[in-house]
Computed example of a mutant assay.
Amino acid sequence: MSNQSFLAAVILLLCFSFSLHGQAQQPDYGKHPHWIKMMDDPNVNYFEAVKAFETYWKGKTKPVEEKEVFSNYNQQKIVTIRKTEREAKEYAFEYKKFLYWQQQVLPYVQPNGRILSTEERLQLFEQEKKERQRRSKGQ
């Protein structure tokens, strides 16, 4: 075997192993609730977190909102609530926390999915405040 063919074989083997390693790093959003940690990560991509959340809950019973429980007192609804899946009970707090997080950060999501940092949000607030003051003085 020549040095060139040996080198080519080694390079091909390395590329293949890196390819497998890259595939192994892909998170399985459907089986594990990665979205829980993602919403606490200040550098998370918003669209990736939403994808993880939606993929995890696809085909699963979602936790029941309090307003749904208290607005419908019939017995059938209560029986349905008792039959929810284990995940719905186990991750009910995180589920609601994610929906709240999603609502709170949405105004600060950039087109690429990056969420403005707290400092950037504060700067934006200060700019808007100065603009309002400038307009009120001009009138």
Score class of each variant (00 low, 15 high):
Gln139Trp: 05
Thr55Val: 11
Asn74Thr: 10
Pro111Ser: 08
Ala92Lys: 06
Lys67Phe: 10
Leu106Ser: 08
Asp28Val: 10
Asn3Ser: 06
Val69Met: 14
Gly30Cys: 02
Ala92His: 06
Lys89Ile: 07
Gly22Gln: 05
Lys129Thr: 08
Met38Phe: 04
Gln123Ser: 11
Ala92Arg: 09
Met1Trp: 03
Glu66Gly: 11
Arg135Leu: 15
Gln25Tyr: 03
Phe53Val: 04
Val109Lys: 01
Phe47Val: 15
Pro42Asn: 10
Phe47Leu: 15
Tyr46Ser: 02
Pro27Glu: 11
Ile36His: 12
Lys129Val: 06
Lys58His: 06
Gly22Ser: 10
Leu99Arg: 03
Asn43Ser: 11
Lys89Glu: 04
Phe16Tyr: 07
Lys58Ala: 09
Glu128Trp: 03
Glu119Leu: 13
Ser136Phe: 09
Thr118Asn: 12
Tyr29Pro: 00
Trp101Tyr: 03
Tyr91Leu: 07
Ser117Asn: 04
Asn43Phe: 08
Glu54Leu: 13
Met38Arg: 05
Gln139Arg: 13
Tyr91Ser: 00
Phe47Tyr: 14
Gln139Ile: 14
Leu20Pro: 04
Gln26Glu: 12
Phe53Met: 01
Pro111Gly: 06
Asn74His: 15
Phe47Gly: 13
Lys67Tyr: 11
Cys15Ala: 15
Ser71Thr: 03
Gln127Asp: 09
Val44Pro: 01
Ala92Trp: 00
Glu119Ser: 12
Trp101Gln: 00
Phe98Tyr: 00
Val109Asn: 01
Gln25Asn: 12
Lys58Thr: 05
Ser5Arg: 10
Gln104Phe: 08
Gln23Lys: 14
Gln103Asp: 12
Pro27Met: 15
Phe98Ala: 01
Gln139Val: 13
Lys37Gly: 15
Ala52Arg: 00
Gln76Leu: 14
Ser19Ala: 06
Asn74Asp: 14
Ala49Leu: 06
Phe18Thr: 09
Pro63Leu: 10
Pro111Leu: 10
Thr84Phe: 11
Phe53Arg: 02
Leu116Met: 14
Trp35Phe: 13
Phe98Gln: 00
Lys31Asn: 10
Ala88Asn: 06
Leu7Ile: 07
Trp35Cys: 03
Gly30Ala: 09
Lys67Ser: 12
Ile11Met: 10
His34Lys: 13
Ile36Asn: 05
Glu90Ala: 12
His34Gln: 15
Ser19Tyr: 10
Pro63Ile: 10
Asp41Ser: 05
Lys60Met: 08
Ser17Tyr: 03
Leu116Trp: 07
Leu7Phe: 01
Glu65Met: 15
Leu106Ile: 03
Asn112Gln: 10
Asp40Tyr: 14
Thr61Gln: 15
Phe6Arg: 12
Lys137Ser: 13
Gln133Tyr: 09
Gln75Phe: 14
Gly113Ser: 07
Val64Met: 12
Ala24Cys: 15
Gln26Thr: 04
Ser117Leu: 06
His34Ala: 13
Tyr100Leu: 13
Gln123Tyr: 02
Cys15Lys: 09
Tyr56Ser: 02
